[in-house]
Amino acid sequence: MNWFSAALGSSVGKKLMMALTGLAFIGFLAAHLAGNLTIYGGKAAFNGYAEKLQSLGPLLHLFRAGLITFALVHVLTGLYLFWLNRRARPVGYRMHATAGGRTLSSRTMPYTGIVILVFVIFHLFHFTFVDKTATTVFDMVAAAFNQPAYVLLYAALMIVVGLHVRHGFWSAFQTLGVNHPKVMPTVSAASIAAGAVVALGFGLLPLVIALRY
């Protein structure tokens, strides 16, 4: 496996891992969002979706294990890259202006990433790893989002996730080598759209819940 670790260990290899895991997360986000949208269908629909998930049993565990592995790879590699990149310029500039390449979202990738990490941990303890014998998922969520602080927190965080996705999406394509004059404009546009969908799709849910239930 030496060739394999060498292949992944280089700068380009590390980015390959980031891109693949990142895209997997975007896939996960898409599925997660689709599931969450069932909340518009009301309590039953939403609880039904949650139960369906639970009923997957071993498959769900496998899925979770995969996600955790991917998360470890993405987070550890991301943090390592962040460190390497800072180290690549030990003496900084007094003035460093952009020539129009960087965006708010590309510039903040490591920071939005870290915020997402903290949030995900919180989120898991908040909704996932809790004793749900006395309540349903729906009630739990509805209760949480009746507190304005949570609504604000989640909405803000979803903007952060949206920012991460807005650069991450097209960046992953570029990293994978999918940059072609015929395709790239679409990918770039899709990246902005994906960021917006994530931010709005997830971000509006708490508000909707708070207002409706």
Binding site: R87, H167, S171, T175
Partner: peptide
Amino acid sequence: GFGNCSNHRECEK
């Protein structure tokens, strides 16, 4: 000792 590409595209600009 160069850094890694984060696709900021400052270089191309």
